[in-house]
Simulated assay, not measured.
Amino acid sequence: MHSLRPEAAGALAAVAPRDLATRPVLVAATIGTGLMAGLYLAFDVSVMPRLARRDDEAYVTAMRRVNGVLDNSGLFGLLFLGVFLATGLAAVLQRRRERPEAARWTGAATALYAFSVAVTVCVNLPLNRRLARAGSPTGADLAAVRKAFDRPWRSANVARTLACTAALGALGRALVLHGRGAAHGA
């Protein structure tokens, strides 16, 4: 078994617990942001185009079911809010480690992800609730319910996709800069 050289052992002992968490928190934020960007993108390129070909009743029914599954998924809620917290924490830890460039990129990612959270809370969730409260509309009412929901929801989802994708890019840059700082002993 190899033992640490005295100077390496001393350096390791001097590392505070928050310093050990810096990279894993940044990695977790990056992975979570990628998952959220992928979820939103799946709606943009797959779910919504497929539903667009359905009649009004099938569209409204499917969106209600999808929203119900996501609203009642503890895993989705944990990921949605956990990414926001992890990204913010990663920015704070980068700043504390005196890695200003990585901190700036992580801060930008936090702001971009916060924008996606705001869009979700201010646009997508209220639309989902309105769709759920619409009762059992028929005929022209069903078409009006769909029309009031579809375009604003899809536009907001595109904004979330773009914000999360940009946040993912910023976190990727922060990871590179974090790695450079570690390689130089920062």
Score class of each variant (00 low, 15 high):
Pro100Phe: 08
Leu70Asn: 10
Asn67Thr: 10
Arg97Asn: 15
Ala103Thr: 12
Asp19Lys: 01
Ala108Val: 11
Gly88Phe: 10
Met63Cys: 15
Gln94Val: 05
Val27Trp: 02
Leu41Asn: 14
Gly38Ser: 13
Leu81Glu: 15
Ala28Trp: 01
Ser46Ile: 06
Val69Ile: 14
Val47Gln: 01
Pro24Cys: 12
Pro24Phe: 04
Ala86Trp: 04
Ala11Thr: 00
Phe76Ser: 14
Tyr40Trp: 10
Gly77Lys: 07
Ala58Phe: 00
Ser116Gly: 02
Gly88Gln: 09
Ser116Cys: 00
Leu35Glu: 03
Ala8Cys: 11
Leu26Thr: 04
Asp55Arg: 00
Thr106Lys: 08
Phe43Tyr: 15
Gln94Tyr: 07
Thr30Ile: 05
Leu78Asn: 14
Leu12Gln: 02
Gly74Cys: 09
Ala13Thr: 05
Leu41Lys: 09
Leu20His: 08
Thr33Glu: 09
Arg104Pro: 04
Phe43Cys: 14
Leu112Pro: 02
Gln94Arg: 14
Ala13Asp: 04
Gly38Cys: 10
Thr106Pro: 08
Tyr59Cys: 02
Ala13Asn: 02
Leu20Ala: 02
Arg99Tyr: 06
Ala14Asp: 05
Gly10Asp: 00
Val27Tyr: 00
Pro100Tyr: 14
Ala21Ser: 10
Gly34Asp: 05
Ser46Pro: 05
Gly68Trp: 03
Ala9Asp: 15
Pro100Lys: 13
Val117Met: 13
Thr22Met: 09
Gly10Leu: 00
Gly107Met: 03
Arg96Phe: 10
Val69His: 02
Trp105His: 10
Val83Thr: 15
Arg53Phe: 11
Asp19Val: 03
Ala58Asp: 09
Leu20Lys: 06
Ala11Asn: 00
Pro6Asp: 12
Arg64Gly: 12
Ala14Gln: 09
Val66Phe: 10
Arg64Ile: 05
Phe84Arg: 02
Val45Ser: 13
Arg53His: 14
Ala37Gln: 07
Thr110Ile: 04
Leu85Trp: 06
Asp19Trp: 03
Asp56Gly: 06
Ala28Thr: 05
Arg23Thr: 07
Phe76Pro: 11
Leu51Trp: 05
Leu51Tyr: 08
Phe115Leu: 03
Ala114Val: 01
Ser46Met: 08
Arg99Cys: 09
Asn72Gln: 12
Arg95Leu: 15
Ala114Gly: 00
Ala103Lys: 09
Gln94Phe: 08
Leu20Thr: 04
Ala102Asn: 15
Val69Ala: 13
Val66Gln: 09
Gly82His: 12
Val60Lys: 06
Arg53Lys: 15
Arg64His: 11
Val45Phe: 11
Tyr113Glu: 05
Ala90Asn: 06
Ala114His: 00
Ala102Met: 13
Val45Leu: 14
Ala29Arg: 04
Ala8Glu: 13
Ala11Val: 01
Phe80Lys: 12
Ala114Asp: 00
Thr106Phe: 06
Leu85Pro: 08
Arg23Trp: 06
Val47Lys: 04
Asp55Cys: 01
Leu75Pro: 03
Arg97Tyr: 09
Ala91His: 10
Gln94Ala: 11
Glu101Pro: 05
Asp44Trp: 06
Arg95Pro: 07
Arg104His: 03
Val25Leu: 05
Gly32Gln: 03
Phe76Met: 14
Val83Tyr: 06
Val25Met: 01
Ala103Glu: 10
Asp44Val: 13
Tyr40Lys: 02
Thr22Pro: 08
Val66Gly: 11
Ala28His: 02
Trp105Glu: 07
Ala11Arg: 00
Ala9Phe: 03
Gly10Ala: 00
